[in-house]
Nucleic acid binder design. Structure first.
Lengths: 162, 162
DNA sequence: ACAATTATGTTTGTGTACAAACAAAACAGA
DNA sequence: TCTGTTTTGTTTGTACACAAACATAATTGT
């Protein structure tokens, strides 16, 4: 069988080859051991779990905006962005889509012509209530097999690096 | 003054909650305590640190692709995607941009007409070497004030939930 | 050999995420 | 008051991230 000499081209994992050139520094940087790589993957997994368990077509950020708005309303668009860790350009897109779906209502602020005042519509409120228990379940599922102590530890460590 | 305590957009702050129907469940779901919210923010902060410390205009995913490709080359596009946790559509965009910048070279696989074989160009190899120490520094900076024990713990916990 | 299935890659569409340029309103200091 | 700065929001452009539809090549089962 003519298995081509070294075809990393398929999913077979070869031995770590020391390629030509000064590779000793490279040996210290393994992508699979970097915190950034872990964070990206963990977040990807969470988003996937969210998408699979939520019944309505809501994204994690849309959900965050809805839940936060329920607490803060009436609330300006910029403030909602700050509270949900989205910049102005991002929160605008999120809010626009929620408005288009009839979950959020916008109105100009009578006391400050720059501001856009957001409130949940009845359907928006209902959507939050309807999905609260599922959202909790998603958080639990994301934490997977971690023990209660480990869960607390992970949250605390993440809080520290934010 | 950061974040005026409540933006509730000017005056009236009514005590929220207690809409008709079970509002007490909402008390149990605080966005700021959900793992997904932490993961998203931690990743955002890492990406920001990366962007601020890297000199050339490289993204975290582009860097991941370059570093992994240095180890795996020659390597198919799909396999590189798998190894860097990107789906086919995403890795294609990343590779396309790296090719356009002259850091990656593509060629058809002679033994499998479906496959696209990727290799680093000389400039691609140089880019990896040139930024390795900065990349390590970025990882350290992301872990911020965590002690060595905490760092190990965080990585281990993230690995468990991936 | 042939049909069904699988693997690999492309394209399109939607949705974050953010930088940068822009506009308009509010505010502060001289 | 007037002027300069800050705040709030919009728009444009680039870059992940992924679903879904598509095309083609390779593999498998019979």
């Amino acid at each position: 069988m003519d298995v081509p000499a070294k075809d990393n081209t398929s999913s077979d994992d070869g031995s770590p080859s020391s390629t030509s050139g000064g590779g000793d520094q490279h040996a210290q940087y393994m992508l699979g051991e970097q915190i950034g790589f872990y964070l990206r993957q963990a977040n990807q997994r969470h988003v996937a779990i969210f998408a699979s368990l939520i019944s309505e077509k809501l994204t994690t950020t849309q959900w965050a905006a809805l839940v936060k708005l329920k607490d803060l309303q009436p609330c300006s668009q910029g403030n909602l962005g700050r509270e949900t860790a989205m910049d102005m350009a991002t929160i605008k897109g999120v809010v626009d889509r929620l408005v288009k779906r009839g979950l959020v209502h916008t109105a100009p602020d009578p006391t400050d012509a720059r501001r856009l005042v957001l409130t949940l519509t009845a359907e928006g409120e209902a959507t939050v209530s309807r999905n609260l228990s599922i959202a909790l379940q998603i958080s639990q599922e994301t934490l997977g097999t971690l023990s209660p102590a480990e869960r607390m530890m992970l949250m605390e460590l993440l809080r520290k690096i934010c």
